[in-house]
Simulated assay, not measured.
Amino acid sequence: MLKLDGISDLKSPISDLKKQEDKIMHDGCAGSFENGQQVVDKVRMMGFAQQLMPMPLDIECHGCKETFTMEEFEGHCPKCDMVHGVTPCHAFDPNNIMAAGIGY
């Protein structure tokens, strides 16, 4: 609401839009996922699938049990092509990485 007689009551519609945008983009961090496909879909939708994680993690593939280094938020096992995903806010712990399926 804009008031011409007092600057203290000035409210920016742009800041309201920014708050709504931030909530939409970060719902994946607050939300819970039933399976790895939902995690990978969210990471892809957010545009983070091919972005580097803060630190690479050595993980055990949920399919073939081979250990590989996951460097991006969406990772593919080099042996069996099992797709794994993790949201950016949970990328600090390998226990948060979920499998989406082979070739997903």
Rank of each mutant, 00 (worst) to 15 (best):
I59D: 01
Q51R: 15
V43C: 08
Q50T: 12
D58A: 13
V43H: 06
F33D: 11
C29R: 00
D58H: 07
V40F: 03
F33S: 10
Q50K: 15
F48I: 00
L57C: 04
G28H: 04
M25V: 14
M46Q: 14
R44A: 00
E60W: 01
A30V: 06
G31F: 01
L52H: 11
H26K: 09
E60Y: 02
G47H: 10
K42P: 02
D27Q: 14
E34A: 15
Q51D: 14
V40Y: 01
M53D: 07
D58E: 13
G36W: 07
F48Q: 14
M46N: 15
F33W: 08
Q51K: 15
L57E: 05
V39Q: 10
V43I: 01
P56V: 00
R44H: 10
S32G: 12
V40H: 00
Q37V: 13
C29G: 14
H26W: 07
M45N: 13
D27L: 09
G28F: 02
C61V: 06
L52S: 13
E60R: 07
Q50R: 14
M46V: 05
Q37W: 08
M46E: 14
N35G: 13
P56F: 01
N35E: 05
G31H: 03
A49V: 11
M55D: 02
M55S: 04
Q51G: 02
E34C: 08
D27N: 12
H26C: 03
V40E: 02
Q37A: 12
N35F: 06
G36K: 01
M55H: 07
F33P: 10
C29D: 09
P56E: 12
L57T: 04
Q51C: 02
M53Q: 13
C61G: 01
F33R: 05
V43G: 10
P54L: 07
F48W: 15
Q51N: 14
P56D: 12
Q37N: 11
P56S: 14
D58Y: 06
F33N: 09
A49N: 06
N35R: 03
L52C: 07
P56K: 13
H26A: 03
V40Q: 00
E60M: 06
D27C: 03
G47T: 13
G31K: 07
M53A: 10
P54I: 08
E34H: 04
N35T: 10
P54E: 00
V39L: 05
M46F: 06
V40W: 06
A30Q: 11
H26T: 15
M45W: 02
R44T: 11
M53H: 05
A30R: 07
L57V: 10
F48N: 15
P54D: 00
N35Q: 00
A49G: 06
F33V: 06
G47Y: 04
K42S: 13
A49S: 14
L52M: 11
P56N: 11
G28Y: 00
S32Q: 08
G28A: 09
M53L: 12
C29W: 03
K42I: 02
M55K: 15
L57H: 04
I59E: 00
F33G: 09
M45S: 13
S32M: 07
H26G: 03
Q51M: 04
F48D: 14
C29K: 01
